[in-house]
Design a binder for these strands. Structure first.
Length: 296
DNA sequence: CACTTGACCTGTCCGC
DNA sequence: TGCGGACAGGTCAAGT
């Protein structure tokens, strides 16, 4: 579930919560979660001070004073949660469904894969129910060289990323569906299932339309909708369906504003037609069958 | 090579 | 109530 807006929300939270703190200890459950050698951890992580928190696509990067970086992918159910005190339950006072509702109880819990303890006694927890996510410790200079960074497409929210560049990126996937192409991280970075559906609805494009049949003006519309939807989602603190929480363990509220995602059976906000859900590009897909038609 | 499907996991929900 | 199976979706490996 963490897509670009969710990872960006976590990044902003961590930036104000952990920069300047020094790492005292690190624990992890399985090598899959944190595959680094103990010697590297001892040498480049323990005692290091957090200097910056960055993001590229859906990948989070925590820079250390040792010129090493913690590279983190949350995949589907990953969370990065900072807790000032182990017994801090102040965030639990909000009711269920409230935008500030905490979705995490006392940490660590059974989903906790990595625990970072800082010198001042505060903690950073990497929780990941389904164990798809990972944390790796790499030299900062080597991060751009890992496979994912070499292949990933441009950042859709970059100020100098134009609609023309956006359309150009899709030419390599002309024979596939527009939804599959949107989800392809090598075309454009950071788009996942939620914002693919939301932006296609905004641009009135059926997800199964072939890329090669999308007109230039439709690409301009899709570009604008994608950026608009993602910016709105960042403002709302991201989308929380089940697991996603920000750096303080709190949910995001974008889904209360979603137009089609998880709204099957409800009316399209534009025309009132009932929204339907089906499978496209291997994913649950939501459309308005009146606004988004397959053949013109 | 271009593209699609399955695997990786666990918790939740649905139907019997 | 219990139980099996479908489902959730980011990415990579394997298959068509």
């Amino acid at each position: 579930m963490p897509e670009l807006p969710e990872v960006e929300t976590v990044r902003r939270g961590l930036l104000s919560l952990i920069v300047g703190r020094s790492v005292k200890a690190v624990e992890h459950d399985t090598p899959k979660s944190f595959p680094n050698a103990t010697a590297d951890v001892e040498r480049f992580l323990i005692g290091a001070k957090i200097s910056d928190v960055r993001r590229r696509a859906k990948v989070l990067m925590i820079d250390l004073s040792t010129d090493y970086t913690l590279v983190i992918h949350l995949k589907m159910t990953g969370q990065m949660v900072f807790v000032a005190q182990p017994s801090d339950t102040s965030s639990l006072r909000f009711g269920a469904g409230h935008p500030n509702e905490s979705l995490v109880g006392n940490l660590p819990d059974r989903s906790t894969r990595v625990t970072v303890t800082f010198e001042d006694g505060s903690h950073l927890y990497f929780n990941d129910q389904r164990k798809f996510g990972w944390v790796r410790l790499l030299p900062t200079l080597e991060v751009p060289n890992i496979d994912f960074m070499q292949k990933v497409g441009p950042e859709p929210l970059d100020a100098d990323f134009t609609a023309e560049q956006f359309a150009e990126r899709f030419k390599r996937r002309a024979r596939t569906s527009i939804k599959a192409a949107l989800l392809d991280q090598t075309v454009v970075a950071g788009v996942g299932n939620i914002y693919a559906d939301e932006s296609l609805w905004g641009a009135k494009i059926h997800p199964q339309r072939l890329v090669g049949n999308i007109t230039p003006s439709e690409f301009v519309l899709l570009y604008a909708e994608l950026r608009s939807v993602m910016n709105t989602a960042i403002e709302k603190g991201g989308s929380t369906d089940k697991n996603y929480v920000n750096a303080e363990g709190k949910r995001g509220s974008y889904l209360t504003f979603a137009r089609v995602f998880r709204r099957e059976g409800k009316p399209c906000p534009r025309c009132g037609t009932t929204i339907v859900k089906f499978k496209a590009a291997g994913r649950g897909t939501h459309i308005c069958p009146h606004c988004q038609i397959l053949s013109p």
